[in-house]
């Protein structure tokens, strides 16, 4: 099973701007752990997660081909 990962703002600056594919990530908490382990700088950044464009508030199971987007807040105006 494979998911697509999109990132925005500061998160994209840290993990790379291009969409990536991740294998065997069962749910969004596993994804969070994977991200924190591989990019420790992400630990100090708050971000929201959308699974297939829907912002989630709880740990969410991921299915094959799901698109997960990671959106940090920014406040410039």
């Amino acid at each position: 099973m494979e998911i697509n990962l999109l990132s925005f703002g500061q998160v994209a600056d840290i993990i790379g701007k291009d969409p990536m594919k991740l294998a065997d990530v069962k749910n969004t908490s596993e994804l969070n752990r994977y991200l924190a382990k591989n990019w420790p700088m992400l630990r100090s950044i708050k971000y929201s997660i959308a699974v297939n464009k829907k912002i989630i508030h709880e740990d969410t199971l991921l299915q094959h081909e799901d698109t997960v987007a990671i959106l940090p807040p920014f406040s410039g105006g």
Binding site: S44, I45, K46, H57, S75, G76
Partner: peptide, 21 residues
């Protein structure tokens, strides 16, 4: 708040003054 329930730590969230636009 339904999008971002908690504000980021100011040190980790740059502004346009710092990061540019």
């Amino acid at each position: 708040r339904d999008l971002f329930p908690v504000p980021p730590d100011p040190a980790s969230a740059p502004s346009c003054n710092e990061a540019g636009v």
